[in-house]
Design a protein around this nucleic acid. Structure first.
Lengths: 117, 117
DNA sequence: AGGTTACTTAACCAAAGAGTTAAAATGAGA
DNA sequence: TCTCATTTTAACTCTTTGGTTAAGTAACCT
């Protein structure tokens, strides 16, 4: 009875697991193989393989082939979409509007130092 | 056998449901009651109540009391932590460094229009 | 071909998630 | 106090998820 999961939901769901976030963190340092990715974890290789499939279906990683190895790398688009989704809410924790606006204000302030009280 | 869910995992998990993201979107327009939040959805009130509990436990919303009503509002911290987590990966989709840097470059470009080919 | 390395798929299980209806709590008002 | 309005809790179902082990596939090596 569950809705066919949309893209954003799949991405958030993939990121909701600490093992998968750790895998992404490792991949941030560069492309690597499944067994290398699995090495730090206290779980079977098939378990890691499943995590990779989840990350792949969420668009967070991509895999190629190199001999027997299936090297994985980060695919930025999904993360970028999370970031863009967050734009709807930045106003709630950034006292002022956005980073460019803040910069513009700082710029104005810097241009008129005589206006300081 | 599942690990006791850490904060970030709970937040991502909460955001992985479209109903809950829709609730957040509604709350971005202002504090409101449970029944008002439930109104657009084709599901029972207890279902919405559960979603709100998930959002609350993830630190994404907070609730107060006003007569029988339990108005909800967005709690920015959890979203902010997602944004900070994303900082680890921004380099992957921002060709240049960060927004301020980009602005500085545009600024330099604007200051030297004579350099255009 | 046969063996080895590197993964993936299949079959299974326990636990968590998202929904339901029915019943309980909580607060306001007659 | 009795009743209404608002929301939560309880009990139940069904599906999904995250792990397991065992078997299968794929590419390379001799």
């Amino acid at each position: 009875m569950r809705m066919d999961t949309d893209e954003l939901s799949a991405t958030f769901a993939a990121l909701s697991d600490p093992t998968r976030r750790a895998i992404l963190a490792r991949l941030a340092m560069g492309e690597t193989s499944v067994s290398e990715l699995a090495e730090p974890f206290d779980m079977s290789l098939p378990a890691v393989s499943k995590h990779l499939k989840v990350l792949e279906r969420a668009g967070l990683i991509a895999r190629s082939r190199k001999a027997q190895s299936r090297p994985c790398r980060i695919e930025p688009n999904a993360l970028k979409e999370i970031d863009e989704w967050l734009n709807l809410y930045r106003g709630f924790w950034e006292q002022s509007l956005d980073c460019l606006d803040t910069y513009l204000k700082e710029l104005q302030a810097a241009e008129k130092p005589r206006d300081e009280a």
